[in-house]
Each structure stands twice: as structure tokens, then as C-alpha cells.
Write a protein that binds this DNA or RNA. Sequence first.
DNA 1: TTGTAAGCGTTATCAG
DNA 2: CTGATAACGCTTACAA
Lengths: 342, 342
Amino acid sequence: MKRKITLKHIARELDVSISTVSKALKNSEEISRETKEKIQAFAKLYNYKPNNIAISLKNKRTKNIGVIIPDIVHHFFTTVFRGIEKYANDKGYNVIVCVSDESFDKEVINMEMLANGSIDGFIMALSAETQLKNDYNHLKQVTDQGIPLVLFDRVTDEVNCDKVIIDDQAAAHMAVSKMIADGRQRIALVTTEDYLNVSSKREEGYRKALEEHNLPVREELILRLPYQYEDEKLSEVFFATQEVDAVLCVNEIFAVRTIRFLEDNDLRVPSDVSVIGFTDGILSRLSNPTLSSVAQHGEEMGTIAAKMLIDKVESDIEEGEEEYRTEVVEATLIERESTRSS
Amino acid sequence: MKRKITLKHIARELDVSISTVSKALKNSEEISRETKEKIQAFAKLYNYKPNNIAISLKNKRTKNIGVIIPDIVHHFFTTVFRGIEKYANDKGYNVIVCVSDESFDKEVINMEMLANGSIDGFIMALSAETQLKNDYNHLKQVTDQGIPLVLFDRVTDEVNCDKVIIDDQAAAHMAVSKMIADGRQRIALVTTEDYLNVSSKREEGYRKALEEHNLPVREELILRLPYQYEDEKLSEVFFATQEVDAVLCVNEIFAVRTIRFLEDNDLRVPSDVSVIGFTDGILSRLSNPTLSSVAQHGEEMGTIAAKMLIDKVESDIEEGEEEYRTEVVEATLIERESTRSS
DNA sequence: TTGTAAGCGTTATCAG
DNA sequence: CTGATAACGCTTACAA
């Protein structure tokens, strides 16, 4: 077992000072070619690599970024994470992930844990509970300390920082308009019952699109389901009493369930009812029929978020003139079988 | 912007020495109640938190664990990750994730990056390319340095370390036996063409089960598809020329595609053909019909891996007598509609 | 009871 | 060209 070698070891071994070794390994002009070669050869031989922790302490820069997301087993977040990770890695940063599990407390604990020197900045999506409580002191504390923060998808106006979002309202509007253009008239909305910022924006877009096309907004056609619902009972009640010819769902899972439910009730998708979901993930591509859905371009969001963060981290504006940006990523509608206007 | 406060600040402010502050905050008996109270109050007021990096440097322990996986947008890995993250967090560890993207080079780079002091140990699943090249020097280097390593799922015998796997062979055997018990006779296997350890183990189980039940192993019934295949052409060729009454797929995606293909060709699942997949993820639960599949219990694997790693990290056997364990997690068959023996 | 000093591994400044 | 020294923030013998 060859323990990690340090500058000190090399210095002792080669009978030079630590600073000489340090400089030699950085190819400093100050050191004679001869000594440099000797030292470099030795270092190579023993596979010397500087200790990141020591460098972090010295530079007050960890080259780590902290990512806090509500759930990792969730296609969208996972996709954003991939974007973050790729960009960050390219820039020489590592990514520390913490999962808040939609819990306010865990979010706070994780942030505090990381804020004590472990990371240079945060990228996060708020937990559902945090949005519900509307308590953002932990975020403010972090920004007050001068730690850069980028919020994505689940954001809040309460905190001053960079943000990356998709225009959920416009996206829902687009989806509903498409259905209307396809001749659909009774369009239902299946959304979450939790108060999530994104859901309500999507609902706004849904309402607006109907209104603009002079279609009535029927509250009975808006179904609110618990975030992780497992029973289709609710949906049965809903569809049994209503005639719908199109459904917009705020996520993939609701959409796939809806399709299944419709087919079990002898309604064909898309001929009888067309369905559009949000989150263009694996389910959309592989459901039967395949699901038209609003792509949120998570990877792109992740890339943008990482870029914004790293730019801030590496800029030395420090007490920056509070110049925060909000990037809006265009959502696109991926059309598949569930809306074929056949 | 209140910059982070350090022991030095407190000491200066309160006109005591740094070590007094340090001890006072640790509630040391050495310090008078009076001073302690003064210091603690001050620290609370200014929200003092020790700097993790400094502590890491001192203790030579980062309380970070490095996780390297081939792909984060993949239900199984994501699930394992969740298990790791939860357990690690409970134990006060953070998790740094790097994605190898199935690439050998990235795997090597990421490991080296993290091995220079950033983490106390690794948990990883080998990339496809690494398994193909059969080159594990980067792993050996890490273990040689005394950094604990736990391999999961995609493992190799070439490296001496703790491992967590499922018995893929037994799992496939179980699945095939179940189909046979249901009266199926011509059972196909849809597997990957890459050389992945897990796939080949599953194939072995498949073959063994058939043999044990005195059924012929027909090579034409074994279909090898590229890892991320997008065209169903291959599968068309396959099924068009064969009569099968059951299919075992080495992953969910292949399984769902198979179902879709069968239905498009007027074969009903499960009445005409029953289908079982591996990886009990969201697709299995939501496909139509729902998919019977082999649950790999990723979260449990993650928990076990994290436990093994942290135990090693925190044990002081150091030059441990090479006592490495391999934990086998029981796979279970989750029966859903695709195998209802109706 | 409090303080000094060394050390964790590096880098940077300043002398020699 | 090379080396001593201080510093990053903290802990911990050891002195006082």
C-alpha cells in the first residue's frame, strides 16, 4: 500500500526544500532546469498529485458545486443533473448532490452542511414543502454569505439570485392551443393538488388558452391529484361523469395513467381523446400509445444553471451589483401518437 | 454580506486565544464556565460554523464519498444512488457523484480527480467500456493507496474489494422457471450485444433453467441488441421468423419495446406471449399491460454499499487483512399483467 | 484556566 | 536559483 506522497516527502527524499519542490512542479522559471528535472522525474515516479483539500484551504475555493434537488429518482431532475454534471466536470468542478426528499428540514440541513466550506456555490430546485411554507431564510443566509446560488425549475421571487426556468404558462398554453387547433373542445386538466409553483403556472396557461379561444373554463374538468397518487379511483370519478375529448396532464405519470384509464374505459387515444403530458421522459417515448409531451429540456437547463453558477463563482465582482438574471428555456411540444389528429 | 466568521475572528474580538475559543466551543472542561459562555454566546450570535475544509485537512477525513456510475438517467442507478445518499447522509457524509458515461477514460479521470483527497472512499459500478477493456488499473491504484472501494452491480473479479451484487443468474433462472411453470415452452431472450457481466449472467440463468426443464436452448431465440437501440427492425426480423410464447428481457426498455412490438403484430400479452423484464422501475409499473419484472432492489443495494464503505472508512484496521465481502441481494419477481397466466 | 506552537499540504512572498 | 516563513482554519499537546 503506497500511501499518498506529499511535497514534504519529495523534499526530504531529494534533500531540497518544500518550496523548491512546489515551484519545480509548477515549472517555475526560478528553478534550475537540472533540479526541476530531478524533482519532476521523482514526482512522476511516485505518482505525486497535489492534495485537493490543502489547495482548497489555501485558495478558499473548493471546485465543488452543491446540487440540492427534491428527488433523484425523477426523470426531469436527473436530466438537469446530467447537464450540470457535464458542464461542471468540463470546467474542473465536482458535484455534490443532496436530496431534500421534498422536505424543508432536509433542505435546510443539507444546505448548512455544504455551506460550511464544502462548496463554492449552489444549484437547487426547491422542495415542495419549502414552497408551501414559503420560508426561504436558509437560502437568504447562503446568499448573504456571498455564496452564489442558482435556482432552477422550482424557484421563488422571494430570493434574489440567478434562475433558470421554463415558461410553464406558455408551454401549457401552447399544448392546449394545439389541441384546440386539432378540433378538441372539452379539454381537461389533470394537475397536482399540492401547491407547486410550476403546476399553477401550467394551470394559468391552460385557462388562458381556453379563454383566448372562447372556450369555457369548466372547473369540473380540472382534476387535482395528490403528488404521488397510486389509486385511480379519483380519476374514475372524474372521467365517469364527464365527457372529454382531450386531456393535458402536468406530468408524464399522470398522462400515462390517464391513457391507461381511458383505454380501460373503452375510450381510444387519440381518436376519442387526445392526451398531452409534461416532462418528455422515457415514459412518453415508450408508453403505448406513445405520449405527446412538453419537453422541458432539462439537460439544457442544467447546463445553463451550471454555467451561470460557475461564471459567478469565478467572477471577482464579489459584492456584485446584484445583477441577477433569469434564463427562460424554451419548452417544445414533442408530438407523438397520443395526439395524432388522425 | 456577512462573510463567514472563523475562530480567529472570535478570538480577536473577545481578546482570547484561538485555542481557548476552539476549546470553549467544544465545551472543554479546561475552560472556565464564564469564558465558555461568553464565547459560545458570541459564536451563536455570529452563527459560527467550523470550516469543513480545514477540518478535513486536519483529520485527513473528508466525510465525502465518491460515487461513480455509468449513467445517472437510468432508473436502476438512480435508485442505488438514493440508497447510498440516504445512508451516507445519515452518517454525516456527503456524496460526490461523477458520471462515467460508459466511458473508460472518463471513469479514470473522475477517479483520479476524486482520489486526491476529495473523498474517503468510492462506490462504483463499472462502465461498459471498462468491462470491455478489462483494464482495472485505476481501481487497483486506488485500493493500493488504501482508499476503500465498493463495487456494485457491474463488478469484476480482477479487483479485490467489497462488492454488492444481485445473483443475476438465479434471478433469470427464477423468471424463466416461472414462465415454464406457467406452461410456456418457446421462451426467447432479448439481451444486449455489449459484453456486460450482468447480461451474460442472465443469459446463463436463462440457459440453465431451460436445460433443467429439458427444454431445448435455441440460439435463434436469443436476440442481441445494441445497448441503446432505437430501431425495432432487429426485433421485427426476430419475431417475424419465430414463434415464441414468452420472452425474457434483460431490461425494462427492451421489455416494453417487445410488448409494443408484439401488440403491433397482433400478438396479445400475456395471452399469446408472456413477458418478463429486469429492473423494476417506473416503466414496469406504468406500461400497458403492466410489466412483470425482476426487482433488483437498487435502493437496498445502495444502502448496503454505503454501509460497507463507511464501515471500512471508519474502521482503523487500515492495513486490513484483506477481508473483503461480497453481499448478494436477493432479486424478486414482481408479477404484473404481462405474465398473468389467465 | 489560558495561551503557545506545531502540524495537516499547499502556495506565495521575501530573503539569502 | 533556493530556502525560510507565513498563511489558509482548525485541533491538540504542552507550557505557563
